[in-house]
Amino acid sequence: MSRRAELANSSPPARDTPGGRRVLITGGASGLGLALATACLGRGDRVLVVDLAETRPSSVPEGADYLRLDVRSQQDWDAGLAHVRDRWGGLDVLVNNAGVATGGRIDVESISDWERVLDINLLGVVRGCQTFTPLFKEQRAGHIVNTASLAGLIHGPGMSSYNAAKAGVVALSETLGFELAPWGIHVSVVCPAFFRTNLHESLQGKDTAMEETALKLITRASMSADEVAEIVLKGIDRHKRVILTDRLGRQAFWTKRLVRPAYNAMATKAGQKLARKSGNA
């Protein structure tokens, strides 16, 4: 019997209820990822935090495993898969949470900035899904949780690369939800509005005006990462396909779908304001 088959046959049964689940969280050393890791540990889950630091960051909570994993590296993803197979015999919840912030007008933001955000925020999620889907199919159980953003559903001006990446994550999640259901695999996409986190530290594009706006929206947001994490976990427990985390997000989501003229007027006004600010109108 091959090592792969041996591990699959000896795996503990996958769990679909809170407590005792095996959870891998990318970008888990800070922000929403850290908040989710802490909350999962508090429920009695086993947690593997993966992030970019070569050695275990001091922020990673006691009781969690740590592994360096760059979501742009398939080799790193393979190491993450090997880790959960060897240590736990499988995985119950994959949280594709790692991401970077970006903002920029189409004629200001560079192609290299586009390539960076798509490689991390979209293809990083794709790599995670591709890596762990075979394991989940073997188990005939599992839950993929992809962190997108309200920007994946509501596409305001001045954020085309970020909006495109997050909309891609939403589309991917919806697709996989239907594609993987026959194997008992659930897929959720998380679409929060702005909340207080360190995401702004990843800003490094050419459009400094847009990045200043993003900085204010993140640092002055009313919700904390811990509050968002609590809502996300409840959504995971209920197998919600789309997890909206705040009132503003729900209002914008339903306005776009049910009152499209009002949504268009709001977005048009935002575009005009951005043009005036840049001195082009």
Rank of each mutant, 00 (worst) to 15 (best):
F253P: 06
V190K: 05
A225V: 12
E212C: 00
A225Q: 01
G235R: 04
A181S: 14
L199T: 09
A225Y: 01
G177F: 05
K240S: 14
K206E: 15
V187G: 10
S202Y: 03
D237A: 15
E230D: 13
L176S: 04
A214R: 10
D246T: 08
I243M: 00
R260Y: 09
L199I: 15
G235L: 01
F195G: 12
R220N: 15
T197Q: 04
H186R: 14
A229W: 02
K216M: 11
T255A: 02
L248S: 14
R238S: 12
T208G: 02
T245K: 11
M223N: 07
I185L: 02
A214W: 00
T213D: 11
E227F: 00
G184L: 11
S222D: 13
A221H: 11
H186M: 03
E211K: 06
K240N: 14
W254P: 01
F178D: 15
D237Y: 04
K206R: 13
K216W: 00
S224W: 06
F194Y: 09
T175A: 15
I243K: 04
A229H: 03
V259G: 01
E230N: 06
E201P: 03
I243W: 07
A229G: 03
V187W: 12
R220C: 07
F253Q: 09
L258Y: 00
W183E: 15
V187R: 14
N198K: 13
T213Q: 14
E174N: 14
L258W: 04
R257K: 14
L203P: 08
F178V: 12
A229T: 09
L203Y: 02
P192D: 05
A181K: 11
V259N: 09
A252R: 10
R241M: 15
Q204G: 15
S222P: 03
P261M: 03
G205Q: 09
I236D: 03
G205I: 08
T255R: 12
E212Q: 12
P182Y: 02
L233P: 00
T208Y: 03
V242W: 06
L176K: 04
V242L: 10
G177A: 14
L217K: 13
T213G: 01
E227S: 07
L233E: 03
G249N: 04
D226V: 06
E227N: 01
K206N: 05
